[in-house]
Design a protein around this nucleic acid. Structure first.
Lengths: 215, 215
DNA sequence: GATCATCGGAGGAAAATCCTCCACTTACAT
DNA sequence: ATGTAAGTGGAGGATTTTCCTCCGATGATC
């Protein structure tokens, strides 16, 4: 809420810089994890480190705003997908593709201690998880989603596919998430009937993981 | 060569420690990349930092020995797979499964500057790449491997699937590479006929990437 | 039981990272 | 046009992380 109001009152150049910092943070966190040096984020955003600290007083504040943005986009995309796509399978596929494109998996499903602090974040996360879960179950009922696939598999998919291998991040031209996402999606179709090892993380477990970490 | 002789002459406890360090390095490099702090590797190996430095005078030496070990295992596994499996597809699948199990993707396909230094390493890498490439082509000719898949896809697969998402590394119980590997393998089967975006990195490009990085 | 390779970690040096502060710049209201 | 409040960048000191040596203690091996 606060970041929205701040955002609206910002001077034009300041707002632009803020967006650039968020975009750079998305990339850097995706590549290096949530402990990545803030200096590098500023450098990639093309702003001074002072500018970054002016807008985001500390790391948590940046992480929180980024997560909020990811959640908002995720919810928007998921709602639109459910509303506009002909069935649950196509809604899921569209959602996952968009999330990977938007680098919205940058902070992973597990970032507990920083997330828990903000109740609003938890609420939108729960809503998103609920939507995805319902769609996953619908797709399975339709016989379009492979047997045994759960909501947790979808979350992990977005995180795994979106992250460039070490050392390959700079060579963006050779890193093609979309290619591997499509292979993975084909593996998720119901035409594949081999039983899978393990099982998906459930929404409940996901919430418990949050509590366990660094708590 | 030198690490083999050293290994043989080592006292029993020293050899055990050396193995533990290598095993820990495999995990830590996989999780954090080749710049991970050596202290953490020593800690996870359950040895003092002094012990690590005694056995591996500097980071490069550790990285090189680990790569050498990965290459040796990779070649062994690939040769055995080609010799024992009924066809190219099954050989490929077995190879990839073993590599992920062994965490042999820990250093990724791109780790140029440290690799180039050692010519023996380059040689075994070339041999392994050649074997995989031949098998990939055979499988495609057999009509068992999906159209458009190349050697580079297999390399990337091993790296991507083997790496735990940020923050999930400690919770080994919930991180199941095998599950996602199987989904991916199903996506690689020839029964999937949708055209894929992009294309695989070729062996030649892989070698060029080496030269570009940090060179 | 003696010997000597090996071990572990304290600790100083070096590097990376954090984060404040302020002289300079710029958008925009008037 | 101009004044001015908002915004900017990055130097630099404080702090933390990481490196890597050194040496007294340990325990494997004969």
């Amino acid at each position: 809420m606060s970041e929205r109001e701040q955002g609206a009152r910002l001077r034009a150049d300041a707002r632009r810089n803020r967006e650039q910092v968020l975009a750079a943070a998305r990339d850097v966190f995706l590549e290096q994890g949530p402990d990545a040096p803030l200096d590098e984020i500023a450098r990639r955003a093309g702003v001074g480190i002072g500018t970054l600290y002016r807008r985001f007083p500390d790391r948590d504040s940046l992480v929180r705003d980024l997560m909020a943005d990811n959640m908002r986009r995720g919810l928007d995309e998921m709602r639109a997908a459910v509303a506009e796509e002909p069935d649950a399978w196509h809604a899921l596929v569209r959602f996952v593709r968009r999330m990977v494109e938007l680098r919205a998996g940058s902070l992973g499903p597990v970032l507990s201690d920083r997330i828990r602090a903000d109740p609003a974040l938890g609420a939108s996360r729960d809503e998103l998880v609920g939507l995805v879960e319902a769609t996953v179950e619908q797709a399975r009922a339709d016989g379009t989603l492979r047997e045994g696939i759960g909501m947790g598999d979808i979350s992990l998919l977005i995180v795994m596919i979106g992250r460039p291998p070490h050392g390959l991040a700079e060579l963006t031209s050779r890193w093609q998430p979309a290619r591997y996402l499509e292979i993975m999606l084909d593996g998720l179709a119901a035409t594949n009937t081999r039983p899978l090892p393990g099982r998906a993380i459930t929404a409940t477990e996901l919430r418990e993981l949050f509590r366990m970490m660094k708590g």
